[in-house]
Nucleic acid binder design. Structure first.
Length: 258
DNA sequence: ATGGTCGTTGGACGA
């Protein structure tokens, strides 16, 4: 069984002890991280390798940054979309695994508010992501794409859909863009196992959101049909939000019978 | 309704 995890850690260095504890506790095969918030030279590579894991990472100073931490070494296929686009934000790392599937770790732009300049950037970025997928894979490939999508796929993924109606992360335009991206042939693996509302992966640090379960499900694990058919479980590690200095996101853990 | 909390920074900005 192969265990694949996505977790927006909101600073790898601030969260290092939690990451190490998670590796020891869950023993994931692939731990995909977002919002490293550090330049590559400040990535805690020795600490990760000290646990017996390998790390492929693509960071930048202060913001963004993605990584794949793995038991077996991986081959980096692409950073961002592998093109020469003058986008300095480090948001995607794609790796080829020894388990014969490709794995994409994404940190989709937040978008700030509907219609803002950052929102337009988010929408354009999602369009480029679709082109990236179509350029390199087909739905018959074994492909897993995970990350912080900054979009709640539908109203079940929102604690108060009326309050969030047409707000950032939930708007019709963003959901259509996500639908367009996943129409490539990607399956939301959590929904293969659980149709319930109120299953969240992120809660605002403010307003006692976690205690009130005022959250969103924006951290997602998608798979093409050949990979999704091997998915046996998906769970959200809510306990990771407890204790001192948690991230505002918790890990989403999927197992595949590979 | 408003503001509130983090992390990276070294005053705001991003989320």
């Amino acid at each position: 069984m192969v265990k694949v995890v996505t977790w927006n850690v909101n600073s790898i260095n601030t969260r290092l002890d939690r990451v190490k504890a998670f590796l020891a506790r869950e023993s994931p095969d692939y731990l995909c991280l977002q919002e490293l918030k550090c330049a590559d030279e400040k990535f805690p590579l020795e600490a990760i390798e000290g646990t017996g894991y390998h790390a492929a990472f693509f960071g930048q100073k202060a913001y963004n940054g993605v990584a794949v931490i793995s038991k077996e070494p991986v081959e980096i296929l692409f950073r961002n979309f592998g093109d020469q686009h003058p986008d300095e934000a480090s948001r995607v790392i794609t790796v080829r695994t020894k388990h014969k599937f490709d794995l994409i770790c994404v940190y989709v732009p937040n978008g700030q508010s509907i219609g803002s300049e950052k929102f337009l950037y988010k929408m354009d970025w999602l369009k480029r992501a679709k082109e990236f997928l179509n350029q390199h894979w087909t739905l018959s490939d074994r492909l897993i794409i995970v990350g912080d999508f900054n979009i709640a796929p539908d109203d079940r993924d929102v604690y108060d859909p009326l309050a969030w109606k047409e707000h950032i992360h939930c708007s019709t335009g963003e959901r259509a863009a996500l639908q367009d991206l996943t129409s490539f042939g990607l399956i939301d693996t959590l929904r293969m196992h659980d149709q319930s509302a109120g299953v969240f992966s992120w809660w605002d640090y403010r307003e006692l959101s976690f205690a009130r379960n005022k959250g969103l499900r924006i951290d997602l694990i998608y798979a093409t049909p050949p990979a999704a058919s091997l998915c046996r479980s998906v769970k959200i590690d809510r306990d990771e939000r407890r204790g001192e200095k948690p991230s505002d996101h918790v890990p989403v853990i999927a197992t595949f019978e590979i």
